[in-house]
Simulated scan of single mutants.
Amino acid sequence: MMKKINEYIYNHEIPYLTENIPDLYKQLEEIRKIRNNAAHGNDVSFEDFQIVKNFLFSEQALAYISWAKIYYEENEK
């Protein structure tokens, strides 16, 4: 499912996310690979953890995702 989400992001602009996070697709692809390793029981390094943590907090991805959700909710009415 994450691959499909990444493909959608690659082909579409998403308010707040695509304009505020440089190389969003590239970063999500890197996180997808880390997620797949963890899901299959492979080791996740501290460096992998830092990549995900930095994306979520330093890039403020969670905040931008929330803002995008609000944007879509308000524009669907």
Score class of each variant (00 low, 15 high):
Leu24Arg: 02
Glu7Ser: 10
Asn36Phe: 06
Asn54Gln: 09
Asn6Trp: 03
Met1Val: 10
Val44Met: 08
Tyr10Leu: 07
Lys4Asn: 15
Lys33Ala: 14
Val44Thr: 07
Asn11Pro: 02
Gln60Gly: 00
Tyr25Ile: 12
Pro15Thr: 09
Met2Asp: 11
Arg32Cys: 02
Glu13Ser: 10
Leu62Tyr: 07
Ala39Met: 12
Leu17Ile: 15
Gln60Glu: 14
Glu59Phe: 06
Tyr16Ile: 14
Phe49Met: 06
Ile9Thr: 11
Lys53Ser: 09
Asp43Ala: 11
His12Thr: 15
Gly41Phe: 02
Tyr16Gln: 12
Asn54Ser: 08
Asn36Thr: 15
Leu24Ile: 11
Glu13Leu: 05
Ala38Glu: 01
Asn37Thr: 04
Leu62Ala: 08
Tyr8Leu: 13
Pro22Arg: 13
Ile14His: 02
Asn6Leu: 08
Ser45Gly: 04
Lys4Val: 09
Tyr64Lys: 14
Asn54Asp: 10
Phe49Lys: 06
Ile31Gln: 05
Tyr64Pro: 00
Tyr8Ile: 13
Pro22Glu: 15
Val44Gln: 03
Ile9Ala: 12
Lys53Thr: 02
Asp48Ser: 04
Leu17Tyr: 06
Glu30Asn: 07
Pro22Cys: 05
His12Trp: 03
Tyr16Phe: 15
Gly41Arg: 02
Ala61Glu: 04
Ile5Lys: 09
Asn42Ser: 10
Asn20Gln: 06
Asn37Gln: 11
Thr18Trp: 08
Arg35Trp: 12
Asn6Glu: 11
Lys3Gly: 15
Val52Asp: 01
Met2Ile: 15
Tyr25Phe: 06
Asp48Lys: 03
Ile34Asn: 02
Tyr25Pro: 00
Ile21Cys: 01
Lys53Asp: 07
Ile34Gln: 01
Ile31Trp: 09
Tyr16Val: 13
Thr18His: 09
Leu62Cys: 06
Ala61Phe: 15
Lys53Ile: 06
Ser58Trp: 01
Gln27Leu: 07
Lys33Asn: 07
Gln27Asn: 13
Leu17Asn: 07
